[in-house]
Amino acid sequence: MPKIKLPTKSPHIDMTPMVDLFSVVLTFLMLTATMRPTEPAPIDTPASISEKKTPDANIMTLVLSKDDRVFLNFDNGPDTILRFRNKVLALMGSRYNIEFTPAELTKFEKYSASLGVPILKMKEFLAIKDPKQMAAFQSGIPIDSTDNQLAMWILFTRQVNPNVQACIKGDTKTGYPIVKKVFKILQDYKVKQFNLITSLEATKINIAEIQK
C-alpha cells in the first residue's frame, strides 16, 4: 500500500482571542486592585474561624501594635466626594486650636496609611515631603485620660460619618492592658458593637468528639 503523505505544516494556533480575553481580564484586575499603603507598624493579626469579610467603606480601624502604640485610620466614606477625612481633621483642628490650611487638609486626605501622630505634631507631619521621615512622627495617638486624643478622633469621625463601623486590628502580641484601655474608650463613647480583624483559620469540631 502506498503511504499517505500528509503535508508537513507547523500547527499554528491562533492565539488572538485568548490574548484579547487575557488583556480584558488583566485590565479589570489592575483597575480594581487597590493600592495598599505601607503601614507604620507591622501587624500580625490573630486567626479566627469567622468568615465575615471586612466592609469596603465606612470603617474606622484602630490599630494596636505590639509596642503598645495606637494608630487610627478611617476612610473617606462610600464616595470619595464626601471627603470625610478632611472634615474630621478640620474638627480636630478646631478642638485643639490648630488651623489647617486647605493644602494640609488635602494632603491628609490623600494619606491613606494608619495614623499615629499626636495632633500637636500634625502640622509638622503634613509638611514632610520625604515619606521616609514620616515614621519618626508615628509615636502613637495619646490615649491617657488627661490627653485622650483617640477619644476625640473617634467622636469626630462618628460625628462626620454616623454609619462608621469600628474595627480593631491588633497584633497577636499586643498586651491586654492596652486592649482593655481601647475597649473602655470605645465603650465610653457608645461604640458598643465593633469588629476584630482576624485572619481566617478553618477549624471544625467533629460530632463524635461531642457525643463522647
Partner: peptide, 22 residues
C-alpha cells in the same frame, strides 16, 4: 493575571464581631 487574582482574593481580612454591654 494569576498574581492580581491571588492578591485581590486573599487580601481581604476577616472580621469577628463583638458586642460590648453598656
Amino acid at each position: 493575571i494569576t498574581f492580581f487574582m491571588l492578591t485581590s482574593a486573599l487580601s481581604k481580612p476577616k472580621i469577628m464581631q463583638i458586642i460590648l454591654p453598656d
